[in-house]
Computed example of a mutant assay.
Amino acid sequence: MRKTRLDIDRIRAARRAIDPIFLDTPLYRCEALEPGLGCAVSIKLETANPVRSFKGRGTEVIASRLADSGERAVVCASAGNLGQALAWSGRGRGLDVTVVASRFAPAAKLDRIRALGAKLELVDGDFDMARERAAALARNDGIRLVEDSLDIETCEGAATVGLELVRATPTFDAVLIALGGGALATGVGRVVKAMAPGVEVICVQPLGAPAMTHSWRERRVVTTDSTNTIADGVAGRRPIPAVLDDLLLVADDAVLVRETSIIAGMRMLLDHAGLVVEPSAALGIAAILEDRDRFAGRHVVTIVCGSNVDVDAYHRWVGAAGAAGAAPASAAGAAPAGGS
């Protein structure tokens, strides 16, 4: 295949920089989900760690390299999960971490960033506005800016999930990956296409935050003016060109799913797998729900990528799913925008 920015040897090396608490996460067949989905489903569970998402894999690589080089301060923009992960990884290595986020981000994520010792700055806008502010802080203060998905460490850290997937027995036919900025999709996709090329790599994004999917389909960067989805972790408006280039090489498909399907997926993961997940983590299940015929008779892996969710909002969403099959985004409290 043509080369992406991601290197398999560097991905293998990244494992050595990552705290083992983030590695070798559970991968198991969840038969209880299968009657409702019509296919064999395995779950790769990326929530059983101190930051409750896969983001710690990438921030461990970044923080390790920063500490080794003698740097002592770092800033990032985040919708919550990256900020928590960088705060956790930085705290253990003596780094001063600043996180810029939208004040509309889930309160649970913001509270956890503060609890982990990072300085938190809030902006009156969405994730892309936070990204601009973080870049300004980095320039003004002369400190390292971490840009999720653009910084190769975030992608190659996330790619270690793929190393674990391709070792799986039995093998699987397709992997469903939440698509936001692209670190997880490009990382896992790179490994899967290099080491298990027969596996279909399918990226999933909300219909209310379609910029990266439209960009993949049109093979050029497509931006949107706004987002409208409860899946705040994948709700960026401005794809990064270099990340899109990588995605074009490793993704077989990119699909959009409705808010009702996301909520129904969250409810299924609660009822049949005992998992409380954030909306982004239910995108894979949502994709199966919307296209059962495509997956019928196949073995599909879905990466459950995060469980940082506001408790009150979660109860509204899953309660709506149980009472009426799902609720529209406007009724469910859709976030105005988001990111990593």
Score class of each variant (00 low, 15 high):
Gly265Trp: 11
Ala251Trp: 03
Thr186Ser: 15
Asp141Cys: 09
Phe104Thr: 14
Arg190Asp: 00
Val97Asp: 11
Met195His: 00
Leu184Ser: 04
Ala286Asp: 03
Val99Gln: 05
Ala282Cys: 13
Leu248Phe: 06
Gly182Leu: 08
Pro328Lys: 08
Arg144Lys: 04
Gly94Gln: 10
Leu176Phe: 07
Cys155Met: 08
Asp173Trp: 10
Ala79Met: 08
Ala77Ile: 06
Gly70Phe: 08
Arg103Val: 09
Ala130Gly: 13
Tyr314Asp: 05
Arg316Cys: 05
Ala67Arg: 12
Ala134Thr: 04
Met212Thr: 14
Trp216Arg: 00
Pro239Tyr: 14
Ala159Phe: 06
Val99Phe: 11
Ile21Cys: 02
Thr98Pro: 13
Ser69Leu: 01
Thr223Ser: 15
Pro20Glu: 05
Asn49Gly: 04
Glu153Gln: 10
Leu275Thr: 05
Thr59Gly: 00
Ala286Gly: 10
Ser307Phe: 03
Pro239Met: 14
Ile143Tyr: 09
Asp111Asn: 13
Ala211Met: 07
Ala107Lys: 14
Gly233Ala: 13
Pro206Leu: 10
Thr171Cys: 13
Arg144Tyr: 13
Ile152Thr: 12
Val304Glu: 03
Ala329Tyr: 07
Ala324Asp: 14
Pro106Ala: 10
Lys119His: 13
Thr59Tyr: 03
Ala108Ile: 11
Ala194Gly: 00
Ala194Met: 02
Ile263Tyr: 12
Val191Gln: 00
Ser53Phe: 11
Ser340Gln: 06
Met212Ala: 08
Ala313Lys: 15
Ile288Val: 13
Pro50Phe: 10
Pro328Val: 14
Ala118Glu: 09
Phe104His: 15
Val301Ala: 07
Glu121His: 13
Ala334Pro: 04
Gly90Ala: 07
Ala134Phe: 04
Arg72Leu: 05
Ala136His: 03
Asp252Leu: 06
Met195Val: 00
Pro26Leu: 01
Asp310Asn: 15
Leu95Ser: 11
Leu45Ser: 00
Glu200Trp: 01
Pro50Cys: 08
Lys55Met: 10
Thr302Gln: 04
Ser340His: 13
Cys305Met: 03
Val74Tyr: 04
Glu290Arg: 01
Ser340Lys: 02
Cys76Asn: 04
Arg5His: 10
Val300Gly: 04
Val188Glu: 00
Val277Asp: 08
Asp310Phe: 11
Thr160Ser: 06
Arg139Lys: 14
Gly325Cys: 15
Gly339Phe: 07
